[in-house]
Design a protein around this nucleic acid. Structure first.
Lengths: 147, 147
DNA sequence: TTCCTTGCAAACGATTTGCATTGGA
DNA sequence: TCCAATGCAAATCGTTTGCAAGGAA
């Protein structure tokens, strides 16, 4: 299935210059993540994409896509790693982390709020010996399902 | 050693009302975390506290302290869980996350910056079906050692 | 005595890897 | 053709747990 959406073409280019192919399995992973509303773990993706892709291959796909900068890993409850499309594909966003069930939901801030936040980050990091390249605001609490 | 610092006494009370003891092993964990400048994993603590305590006991100590609300788990690179003293003991702070080596360093914001940040969080969460109880700003980049 | 704790080893779940096979440019 | 990609099974790694022995109240 080569829908050739914008995202698909960007990823194809990125992988191409990394010397790896954009195979069916990898497209399926990207598709599932594009459809998701938050980070997904290997086993969650495994269910989402019912097909016969074995877990080990899924892990390999995730690893390749991660190395190529297509994905961003998100470390989740109990030693689980969840992935989402990297910011250059999915846009900059923040996280609502449910302390009960561990799910993470993406949120985007209004331009106004985002710019205020960036101002804070900038001011804070200016005087540190730390080369800041990005930020995420993690809001903790209970999600709608866990109230 | 029963130094009986303020923190120790507060924890002792907390554990007491949870029906568990504040044993030597647990004191050692708290001590190591109090000395650390960021979250520590079980195996990191195992090295820090060089002697005798087997990993499984260390995990159990972490679990008990976590359940009692003394620690706060922090999900780190590659399915590792790192712990730090809970905010009511260590104070509210944020994180500098090194994308290269995965270490996390705590930072405190000035009152000015913290209040600006809180304003943003408040504004954002007000209109969500998410019961927000806290927040952490995660600044990503390269730490001094990984530049 | 009565629970809480600890040690040790086995068990577990998530992730990785070796190897032989398949697939795509 | 030639090297990347895949499946499968076995191996790793962080973490958990069952069970018997060791404290503390």
């Amino acid at each position: 299935m080569t829908t050739g959406s914008t995202i698909d073409r960007e990823i194809e280019a990125r992988l191409g210059s990394a010397g790896v192919r954009y195979t069916r399995a990898r497209r399926a992973v990207v598709g599932a993540l594009a459809r998701a509303d938050g980070p997904r773990s290997a086993s969650e993706l495994h269910e989402d994409m019912d097909q016969g892709v074995p877990l080990s291959s899924l892990y390999r796909s995730l690893s390749v896509l991660d190395d190529a900068g297509v994905l961003e890993p998100h470390n989740s409850l109990k030693g689980l790693t969840r992935y989402e499309l990297a910011e250059w594909l999915a846009g900059h966003h923040h996280h609502l982390v449910c302390l009960i069930c561990g799910t993470v939901e993406d949120i985007e801030l209004s331009a106004e709020m985002e710019s205020r936040l960036e101002k804070v980050v900038e001011t804070v990091t200016k005087q540190l010996s730390f080369d800041a390249t990005g930020h995420t605001l993690e809001v903790h609490g209970r999600c709608a399902r866990c109230v």
